[in-house]
């Protein structure tokens, strides 16, 4: 139920967007986020519940890598 998957917004019309999940396109409601075309969103039961801009995603990957590295000599 709380499963949610990330996808890329490729079209927007009002509060409805088309989101591309690795090639599979689905209609998604965008009422809960301020998304633009090209944004990555996390989708749960047909609604985008959060925006994940690529910068954020990379940044968090970075934080993660650092954490892993800094902990290496624990």
């Amino acid at each position: 139920m709380c499963l949610a998957v990330p996808g890329k917004v490729i079209e927007i019309e009002g509060s409805i967007g088309i989101v591309d999940f690795n090639g599979v396109k689905r209609e998604v409601r965008l009422d809960l986020v301020d998304a633009k075309i090209g944004d990555y969103v996390i989708v749960h039961t047909g609604f985008a519940i959060e925006k994940m801009d690529e910068k954020d995603a990379l940044e968090s990957l970075d934080i993660w890598k650092q954490l892993l590295k800094s902990e290496e000599d624990y």
Binding site: M1, C2, D31, L32, T45, F47
Partner: peptide
Amino acid sequence: AIGFETTCPTTAVAVLN
């Protein structure tokens, strides 16, 4: 409508629209 906080806002949108 079942679900935790992940789903509740979607129901809120539905109630309003």
